[in-house]
């Protein structure tokens, strides 16, 4: 199948190095400490953060740092064909783990000893790149909850189809079976916290694809930063003196 047509346009009309439109909103769950909705094109994810709060299971308590937990789920209505899935399948367990590890790496857990932070992410619309969208949403929700972090974590995917590196794959491109590289970075520190790929790719092409994904992450980071800053300013001026 042709994923990039001769004019250099992809199936949804983007250029190979173009991202989908980003949209995010902070504070969507009123009872949560922090929450956010993050959209990348048609992929839409909601995240809610509770905590730092008292550890529910005392045996998990760590004396010098916080416990971070994460639960990923996919709404039944999120995909094209409505499927009744068991609640904890392998895929969601894996993504929960990935998100937990990525977020734990940037949260300053030692500042909140003997407490627990719960991150709940749910996919509302799946159109490829749910993993990245979940991480971005979780970052926003954590920042909204006022949890101290080393840096923002942002994530973006890139792929390689028709011998062209493509940024931010959608569902159709994702299911083409080509390589899909999901990268998560700490933009300020310029470090990689997440790197996943489920196919083979020659070393030199891999590097260009990964570089592309990193560029995507940086674009997401700029967007998130602006949004958080605007939100903070709003809160501050409304509060008054």
């Amino acid at each position: 199948m042709e994923y990039v047509n001769p004019e250099g346009l992809r199936l949804d009309g983007r250029r190979p190095l173009e991202m989908r439109q980003l949209r995010a909103e902070i504070g969507v769950v009123s009872r949560a400490d922090g929450s956010a909705v993050f959209e990348m094109g048609n992929t839409k994810v909601i995240a809610a953060v509770y905590g730092p709060r008292e550890v529910q299971n005392k045996s998990q308590q760590i004396n010098d740092q916080a416990v971070v937990r994460c639960e990923y789920s996919m709404a039944n209505f999120s995909t094209g064909d409505r499927m009744r899935k068991p609640k904890h399948d392998r895929r969601s367990t894996e993504i929960s783990l990935v998100i937990r590890q990525t977020m734990e790496a940037c949260i300053l857990t030692h500042l909140m000893p003997r407490s627990q932070i719960d991150i709940f992410v749910q996919v509302l619309q799946a159109d490829g790149g749910t993993r990245s969208a979940c991480i971005n949403a979780a970052t926003l929700a954590l920042a909204d909850a006022g949890i101290p972090m080393r840096d923002l974590v942002t994530s973006c995917a890139a792929g390689y189809l028709n011998s062209t590196p493509l940024l931010d794959l959608n569902y159709v491109e994702d299911s083409a079976g080509g390589p899909d590289v999901t990268v998560g970075i700490l933009p300020k520190l310029d470090k990689v916290t997440l790197l996943q790929m489920d196919a083979k790719l020659p070393m030199d092409t891999f590097e260009t694809v990964m570089q592309l994904a990193i560029e995507g992450c940086k674009a997401v980071a700029n967007y998130i930063r602006e949004l958080l800053l605007e939100n903070t300013k709003q809160l501050e001026f409304r509060r008054g003196v």
Binding site: D33, G34, G51, P52, R53, L108, A143, D144, A145, G146, I147, P148, M149, R150, K188, L189, L228, L229, N231, T232, L235, E236, R239
Partner: peptide, 29 residues
């Protein structure tokens, strides 16, 4: 501190008291 710079770890408002620099978080516990 990160690479010799002072960096915020939360969203909030920077407050300065003499030498002390801190960030007053808004929405937090």
């Amino acid at each position: 501190e990160m690479e010799g710079q002072v960096v915020a770890t939360v969203c909030g408002v920077v407050e300065r008291v003499n030498k002390l620099v801190y960030v007053r978080a808004l929405r937090a516990r």
